[in-house]
């Protein structure tokens, strides 16, 4: 049994915020951020729903091990199911609306319905996070339009920053509030764009600096996989993602002390378990 202790010096009351996680460039970590920040918020006691709004290239369900969901956002946007039919329980109390993996259904889906679908559940949650596709095509526009706020994600290199700028412009055209930008996969190497320069270039606050962390890569591994926030909550990237979550909430600190999950103790437990007598199979 893992005991968790959260120290939150301030908790504000919110009325259902719908935030989309968008970038421009693919592969910068939107899905990882949406999934793990959502879990972090849920661990802090907020009711959270994460919607995989990437209708064409759904990945959130893969990150969370929910690829076999019978009813997905595709069915909802086709008018064949209600959104409540497509809400599933995810890790640590978070709710998930997965997108379908079927290419056939993708062709039939009307992404413009997303806004009314999200509106119908906005009052049920403190936070709805939309994992938005890469690029600035129609499905991205529909997802941004379905949100109230936009959180941008980029890696600290010029192509990613240039692409996220385009997403920022698109969000501005749609009159959506851009709350900030998260810099992901930061290695601290020479040549990376610093957070100060990103703030100056994009005129946006930096909502998080997530270090490059090999633990993130293990998310999709079969046996050791699972979201970072559940599997390795003390990993550097996990701690940084929690800070991003706390910045979104407006709480000053979000610290997790997980008793019973000491990595050193865990090692000795696994070592000594080799010598423990295993029960005979029935």
């Amino acid at each position: 049994m893992i005991n968790q202790e959260f120290i939150v010096s301030k908790k504000l009351v919110f009325m259902g915020r719908v935030i989309c996680i968008a970038s421009g460039k693919g592969g910068v970590g939107k899905t990882t951020l949406a999934g793990n920040v959502g879990i972090a918020l849920a661990q802090n006691g907020y009711s959270v729903c994460i919607v995989d709004a990437d209708i064409a290239m759904a990945n959130l369900s893969l990150l969370l091990g929910m690829q076999s969901s019978p009813i997905t956002l595709h069915d909802v946007l086709l008018g064949e199911a209600t959104i409540n039919d497509a809400i599933y329980d995810g890790p640590k109390g978070v709710k998930i609306v997965p997108s379908g993996l079927s290419l056939e259904n993708y062709r039939r889906v009307d992404s413009e319905r997303l806004e009314s679908v999200i509106d119908s559940i906005a009052g049920q949650f403190d936070f709805i996070l939309l994992d938005v596709p890469a690029g600035i095509e129609k499905n991205v526009l529909a997802a941004i339009s379905a949100s109230d706020e936009v959180l941008l994600v980029a890696t600290p290199d010029p192509p990613s920053i240039a692409d996220v700028l385009k997403t920022k412009i698109v969000a501005q055209r749609l009159n959506r509030k851009i709350i900030g930008i998260v810099l992901n996969m930061v290695r601290g190497e020479k040549g990376e764009i610093s957070d100060t320069d990103v703030m100056k270039m994009l005129e946006l606050p930096v909502y998080g600096i997530i270090p490059y962390d090999p633990e993130v890569w293990k998310t999709f591994l079969h046996e050791k996989g699972g979201p970072l926030m559940v599997r390795s909550p003390n990993a550097p990237a996990a701690l940084a993602l929690r800070k991003t979550a706390s910045k979104i909430v407006g709480a000053e600190i979000a610290i997790v002390h997980e008793r019973g999950k000491n990595p050193i103790a865990g090692f000795f437990n696994r070592l000594f378990s080799i010598f423990k007598k295993k029960p005979k199979a029935a």
Binding site: P158, I161, A162, L165, K168, I193, D197, K200, M201
Partner: peptide, 9 residues
């Protein structure tokens, strides 16, 4: 590069 991005923003 940075100047160009900043100006576009």
């Amino acid at each position: 590069q940075y100047k160009m991005i900043k100006e576009a923003s």
